[in-house]
Design a protein around this nucleic acid. Sequence first.
DNA 1: AACCCTCGAGGTCA
DNA 2: CTCGAGGGTT
Length: 698
Amino acid sequence: MSGAEDVAVDALDEAAAAAELARLAAVIARHDRLYHQEDAPAISDADYDALVRRNRAIEARFPALVRPDSPSLRVGAAPAEAFGKVVHPVPMLSLDNAMEEAAVVEFLARIRRFLNLTADAPVELLAEPKIDGLSCALRYEAGLLVTGATRGDGTTGEDITANVRTIRDIPQRLDTDDPPPVLEVRGEIFMELEEFRKLNERRASEELPVFANPRNAAAGSVRQLDSTITASRRLRFFAYAWGAAEPPITGSYHGFLERLAAMGLRVNPLNRICRSAEELIAYHAEIGERRAGLGYDIDGVVYKVDDLRLQQRLGFVGRAPRWAIAHKFPAQQAVTVVNDIVIQVGRTGALTPVAQLEPITVGGVVVGRATLHNQDYIEEKDIRVGDTVVVQRAGDVIPQVVEVVTDRRPKGAMPFDFPEICPECGSHAVRLPGEAVRRCTGGLICPAQVEARLEHAVGRDAFDIEGLGKKQVPQLIEAGLLKAPADIFRLAGDPAKAEALAGLEGWGKKKIENLVAAIEARRTIPLDRFILALGIRFIGEANAKLLARHYGTLETWRQAMLAVAGDDEDARSELADIDGIGPKLVDALAEFFREPHNIEALDDLASEVTVEAVASPAGGGSPFSGKTLVFTGSLEQMTRAEAKALAEQLGAKVAGSVSKKTDYVVLGADAGSKAKKAAELGVETLDEAKWLAMAGVS
DNA sequence: AACCCTCGAGGTCA
DNA sequence: CTCGAGGGTT
């Protein structure tokens, strides 16, 4: 031993301190590696903590000497006020699920079809365990960890950098001489079962509530504002993907993972290359058998096409890649009793039956209720009050009644009598022919609908008013302070109302101030959110945007909708011509605007707020954005399906036949009648090379 | 088949 | 907030 490590911190001079910090950074990094890569720690946790403490003590004396790769960055940061937002430069996607082996076979078949391969052409896939934790994106710039973010909605996540730094499987600095300028590593943060058990033991002894399962424990730990708490939880990490990367990632997926491992990130050692559906299924079975002994929770395995060029060609459908699929394990099941079936009334008046179950633990959480969806569902499974039923958590999350154990049915149990009267307001509840749901016709006289509509209006995607939620809305309705959406704004505008608020339980001065501020902050609202807030049937986030973009201003839209309600043919066809708006939507809008009280409520709300106009989408980056394309003839560089997917990605619409609305016709080899038609109509044609060049594919 | 809307359950943190 | 199911629309 050199002795430096024995010198008291107080006795170090600056040069010795710098040297000691360098030594500690290296030693701690080495122990981190042993811990996470070999799973063979060379020292005890206590000794490791002592090293970390010594490092921190020296830094406290010589703040100027803190190294960019200092281990103390793992734990040092002061508690944050709240989590910042991180926009993912490349969206974080979800995977399609396969529950059955047949779906795995179909997955492979579809890949081969899409790539124009024969049914027995070799395709290599990397199979890996699917960890049940929370996904996370780590951004390294020039080899240094700069941000860690949760998945969030896939586009925007929360900034959990300080917490991520406390995870020993995640290096502060990539172990390479030649770090990439940008590398965003994605993977799963999770808690091992042993740590989970110890954590809950500790919490139980401190009389704190215990976590329901390791995944929730990991999620709770990562969402701590105080990163020292996160640090004490010993989370783990496996890498399995990337987002932004400069230079781009090329080659194979397994090669990418090997490079990550070489740079000090942890990669699951159970990953394996497979070459056929049989091999994939065998892998699934093998991992399933080893599941209990892994020491951490998994909910299935994931298969990914290994060749990154093929991944790119396969692309995406919706939010999920075509080149990957999650093959889940069967859901865990349990048996319990249906104590009651209650009816809930939603915003649109839908009557939804919910089974009240004798509480039972399924897959780590206590389940007490399960939706029964509708009348048909209950009848098909013949679920009766008093029945013993098999319950599972679909996708290991959502409780679901699978089947009735009919031998255990009590004598005299009657089939469920689905109400034809709304249990909340007594109005008739009707089921239209061809529909599965029965709906209350009470509209605004139905308290359940009024409440649900108000909750919808203040919701995150509509007015987004902080401090008004499922708890407060019913309370304010009860107090007579809320009836229609416009009343929300009168809460802030009318002093008498604010005073009435102060008389209610749980409304202190501060809370009222906050609410008023939150409401005032939302007095200006974009048209699409305003439309969404009205709660018109079928008009969700996407359709509200379509309408807002097309009509631009509230007044234009309102006039057009009134004309539609008055059966004005021109207004109707203008509306129906918007791509994505079909007959049912037209009817729903007309119906809404035929009700005088709806228009009153709309105008009332509009008088309280400023509705911002929405610009119709600009041309966008691509020459094809907003254009209509037709492909004809056989393409050589890619299949028709790929070309279509690419064009749509660029904002184009792909049509099947040439018309005067077509902007471009892409001619493959042996193009026939469509080429002729294009010439007749004077539509611009592109050959394959030209199309690829314009699409930005070289 | 892809996409959208609606509804539901259950969890954690402030 | 996240996940998932079911049903509707295009």
